[in-house]
Design a protein around this nucleic acid. Structure first.
Lengths: 215, 215
DNA sequence: TGGCGCATTTCGTGATCACAAAAGACGAAT
DNA sequence: ATTCGTCTTTTGTGATCACGAAATGCGCCA
């Protein structure tokens, strides 16, 4: 008997649309305030309005899209207060996730993180904002997966999703040269098993970038 | 000119369904594992399948409903691990919310909380589990509204939503006689402006009930 | 040149329908 | 009595359509 490792011969249309849009939003490929239409989304993914609407509805429930009172769909434009709040949420959730991941962080994980980190440096050198955002989130997700806390990780990803378009606007204007300093602190704290240091490093890394966006 | 305080003459169908289902789930009116059908929901709210599906899709995005691989909809049956994780999330978020509400908590708010608390005692005397859950959440929400942190409050409510059916199962079997002890500690800490005490009281209140559910 | 009003187009909403897959009911064979 | 196979029913999915509202474009007038 041959069990297919991917028992998914027919992914549903709305899920395909959902995943496609979600990826673009989270990785900052869509600018804040960008208007979308159901018919446009449907045409782009080659489906009718029905699954497009379901995907949009789901994304708006996660805060990845905003729907005006007249039903118009667009990527969110966040106020400074909201950005600060989301940054505080990131700090709250991700510090906890990192803390839970710490006792399970073996050497293989740390090497993976270092590998991701060096690729981030390449993305920075190439000035590729989207790749940088994606790789940065991959760094964090790789660490947090070890926390064995799926609901908490899902919430953190929801926050990333809400910040996606805004992060694009941030890293677009920010011309940085150096790889993220706090990522190296995170790795050091992981190696040393230093929980307070890890918490501080994660909090700093998460808060750092958002601060200049508010300015 | 007479401005209507409710400028919502025509609430959309899917929103009506969403709100209706959400309230029932959050307040524990639906048992865990209860199967639902789109046609049934549509008939109950007197709409077609389309808005019913949108509401269900949105609720499943919030974790209030689970959708099987074949598309079947039901209220979630949470594992013990998931319950513990959600309790930890409640602690994390609500301690922060209470802490942010503390400096803005005036006497009028505290009186409102005491009023809600005495009604909780009545609900307990009446052995009305649904009313108890609803009032208990009202107590927490009233406090957290003062935190001026809408995104954080929304996340906390999402956790409540996921725990709704399970809380029903909990308070159904639990025959308690006394009003919640930790609510009085919360009020005391608010009066005294005691932040560490408040954080501890909220954490205890949130963790308390869930512990015996895991047993 | 700038603002106003009307017609056209675009867009979201919700109902309906055909289709396929899953679940359930029923009966026969062991 | 139980299990297996089949047939019927139930259910979710996605496309299409009609409708009304919102937005857009355009021309007119000041």
């Amino acid at each position: 008997m041959l069990l297919n490792p991917r028992p998914d011969p027919a992914p549903s249309a709305h899920d395909r649309v959902y995943r496609g849009l979600r990826g673009r939003i989270m990785h900052g490929e869509l600018a804040p305030g960008l208007p979308l239409t159901l018919r446009g989304i449907g045409a782009e993914f080659d489906v009718s309005m029905t699954p497009a609407r379901e995907a949009v509805r789901r994304l708006s429930a996660e805060g990845a899209l905003t729907i005006s009172s007249s039903g118009r769909v667009s990527t969110p434009e966040l106020s400074n207060d909201r950005i600060e709040e989301l940054a505080a949420l990131r700090a709250l959730l991700e510090v906890e996730l990192a803390s839970r991941a710490l006792p399970r962080a073996h050497i293989a994980l740390i090497e993976r993180l270092q590998s991701i980190n060096s690729r981030i440096a390449e993305d920075i050198a190439r000035q590729d904002a989207v790749a940088y955002i994606r790789r940065n989130l991959e760094f964090h997700r790789t660490l947090y997966l070890r926390a064995q806390a799926p609901a908490m990780l899902a919430m953190a990803e929801t926050v990333w999703l809400q910040l996606g378009p805004t992060m694009r606007a941030l890293y677009g204007r920010l011309r940085r040269k150096d790889p993220p300093h706090y990522h190296r602190l995170i790795i050091s704290a992981l190696k040393a098993g230093d929980e307070p240091g890890l918490r501080l490093a994660v909090r700093s890394d998460v808060t750092q970038g958002l601060r200049m966006l508010v300015a």
